[in-house]
Design a protein around this nucleic acid. Sequence first.
DNA 1: AATATTTATGCGTAATTATGCAGTAACAAT
DNA 2: ATTGTTACTGCATAATTACGCATAAATATT
Lengths: 248, 248
Amino acid sequence: MLKKERHAFIKREIDLHNKVLSADLCIPLKASEDTIRRDLQELEKANLLTKVHGGAISKSIQFSLENQIFYSQSEKIVIAKKAITLLQDGMTILLSGGTTIIQMIKALPPDLNATFITMSLPTALGLLQHPKSEVIFVGNKILKNARMAVGAAAVDGIKQINADLCFLGTNSINAAQGITDLEWEIIEVKRAMVAQSKKVVSLCISEKLNTVQKLKVCPLSDLDYLITELPGDHPLLMEYQMEGLTIL
Amino acid sequence: MLKKERHAFIKREIDLHNKVLSADLCIPLKASEDTIRRDLQELEKANLLTKVHGGAISKSIQFSLENQIFYSQSEKIVIAKKAITLLQDGMTILLSGGTTIIQMIKALPPDLNATFITMSLPTALGLLQHPKSEVIFVGNKILKNARMAVGAAAVDGIKQINADLCFLGTNSINAAQGITDLEWEIIEVKRAMVAQSKKVVSLCISEKLNTVQKLKVCPLSDLDYLITELPGDHPLLMEYQMEGLTIL
DNA sequence: AATATTTATGCGTAATTATGCAGTAACAAT
DNA sequence: ATTGTTACTGCATAATTACGCATAAATATT
């Protein structure tokens, strides 16, 4: 990881959240706190941020309120860290959209050398920051509220792919129905993703466990892994384990 | 391996991954680190990348690090306002990437009801803010440097389209060569855009008038409109008018 | 064709840079 | 005041780079 890359990463974190904690940067950047601190020093000297005890904050919004942009962010970070343990060099990986996936992208090891395929604009944009990965966007009509490509051409595009892994940001999952979602166009795309992947991983914060929406994406039997922020032996997860899912 | 070949290889790596490590290049290029470093020096002098300790990074990352303030923003706003006068309800419009295009998107009339097609991730994301328009993203492999989809599938995707208007954010234009650009993969996409549009509009800040890059996108005769921040009767624009372009 | 001249490349060594570690000082929160 | 965390200093180490030079290859000149 080059110094400038770390700087870019830090700057982006600041732009996104208006602050960073030094300790939080150590893992994704694979550097010691010393190095991070020196990075922050340099960025401060370049007038790009303001260093404070424990990290740094944005120059523009120093008085900023604690903006919890992302709902349940800390849980999603836990999920993200579990998710990246499944990744290996050389893999082809399908990614859906959603804030959990975004957290996962931010947690990607910078030296991972994989091919990522997505239909989600925010996911694609996030992946551009990754130094080594290749990014393929399966395009078509963009569904505005989901910010992803949907429709026949997108589904056809996915069908050209043979992926090793598929990560689904999951809105609703329960034992009887499996994964369910709200919009037909999204369902179509997710089904195609599931069909084209060797292994399917559901990322789901625990509060969405055992909930159900109108439309069915796929049964539990199509899934291989379930990742929540809970420990693997939590009672809520038992019935999923019984169905044959690997719980992380 | 010829020097030019090495340079081409290095440029491609930068485009794809936003960075290269000197050490990583030694094996594929069969050259010593010294040679690689000298290559990087030359490419830096030619303004094609930024050398850093350990390798080199893309200029665009460097730029986004230094100032997120758009270059020549006020000029681009003037251009954007002129550009939107060409738009009408029901049109199908191809958009390239670039900060001028982003300004144009911000200036779109909220009640415009048009279909926008693009290969640029930032452009697509900007368009999502627009309440009424439909957005279609022509996907494929993403060129990190330019944040846009490139390659055969993207070009094929464009060929399915019949657009009324095409807006090109233009890096270089002159009377003799027409529009020129730097990277082959971008050229391919822009050519396809031009070919599939009834009318083609070049958006170009005046300082990029009468400049030229290595690769040719299209001759002036393929263009219909030229929009700069200058008044239409400015002497710099005369020769373009003589060539039959409508100057806004 | 032979020779000179420029250009490109690789190697050894010295200098520079980047990073992590240990110990100590400063800070924040109870 | 006490305690745990974060920051700074100096130092050690490893990686990267620059420099001088020798050699090889390409190009120009006679």
